[in-house]
Structure formats: C-alpha cells, structure tokens
Amino acid sequence: MADLEQKTKQGASRRDFLRGSGFAAATAVITGPAIASLDEAKAAEPEFKIVSDTTTLKLKVNGVDRTCEIEPRCTLLDTLRNRLDVTGPKRVCDRASCGACTVILDGDLVYSCTTLAISCGGKKVETVESFDSGVNSVPHAFVQNDGLMCGYCTPGFVTACKVMLDHNPNPTIDEVRKGVDGNICRCGTYVGVLQAALAAAKTMKGA
C-alpha cells in the first residue's frame, strides 16, 4: 500500500516540471517508485550555474510580462517596489512577521520580503493591484466594512483574505482569523477586516 501525497504548483521552472506541472494546487497520488525516477532525473542535471552579478529577471506581474535587472540579494518585495514600481505590497517589518508585503506567487500566499527575486524567474506574481474585479470583490468589501484606516497594512490583508476565500468560500470567523494571522494592523482595524472577509464570502456566493 502506498499513500503518497504530493501537492504541485503552477509554473514553468525546472522544479515545477519535476513536481509534475499542470496539477495546479491539486493533490496528486503517485506511486512509490516515482521518487526514484525523479531522483534519476535530478542526477542527470548538469553542473550548477553561479549567478554572482546583476542578472535579468523575467516574471509575470498581474498578468503582464515584466523584466528588470536585479542582484541575487534583491528580495521580491524590493524588486517589485523599487524596480517595477509595483507599490501595493509594502515594506514594514522586512522579516516575515507582519504581512504587509504579502503577494501571491504561483498561487501561494507568501511574504515577498523574504523571497529572493532571483528565485521567482518565470513565475507568476499577483499583487493587490489586480484584485478589484467589481463591487463583489474583496477590496470593495474592505471599503464597505471600513476594514482599513491608514491603509498601509491593507494590501497585505486584502491579499491574504482573497487567498483564504479562494480556498474556503464559506469561512467561519475563526477561519478568517487564521487566514489573516500572518498580517498585523497597527491602527487596529481587525473588526472591520473580519467583517469584510465574511461579507465578501457572502457577496461572492451571491454573484
């Protein structure tokens, strides 16, 4: 008996090829020997390439192909903000604690402040700027429920909420809490944020 669970992701990198691209965010059951064959594939990989200087990064941001020059040490966040003028994601803690930098990378919610841009070549980045799909979308729910004050944390919260609702269209309030626990608001707008997420779930179902 083999019970193998493997989550695969969208994208075109070699890693994703090995992981079996095409099974977007799905759980695939593959048999035991698959690991061995993947190991053989890895063994056949050529010698490694060292990137030590600036290099050209290509990635898709909100559906648009973008290109810029980066150093290996540039984070995805700083690349978006400083080089591509995508300033929805904010730099606040810069240490994977506060969530203001949250983006969706190949379908996964991640902190862009602790993701190297160079590791995102060919990947799809979705940021808060692309989530306004009409009055039933999450950004509108934040406005209707006043889930924001100064607004600096809001892009991260909207992004986390959107992904949470994509995965769980009928959340309880505690599930909403867990879904946005990777984000911190200093003005203290959590009550509106929670209401916004629940309201968005409702209107999205109605739509």
């Binding site: 070699r14 890693r15 090995l18 890895k42 063994a43 990989e45 010698e47 490694f48 390439k49 060292i50 990137v51 030590s52 150093e71 290996p72 040490r73 190297l116 160079i118 590791s119």
Partner: peptide, 19 residues
Amino acid sequence: MKAFEYVSTASADIAVKAL
C-alpha cells in the same frame, strides 16, 4: 543584506557540490 553568489538546484548532489 550583503551581496552573495547564487546557485539554484533541485538536486541534492548538486547542492552538495555547490556548497
């Protein structure tokens, strides 16, 4: 963050070599 050189691999063998 100080500058560094970057190697990316899914292979443990290559990772060991690169280190």
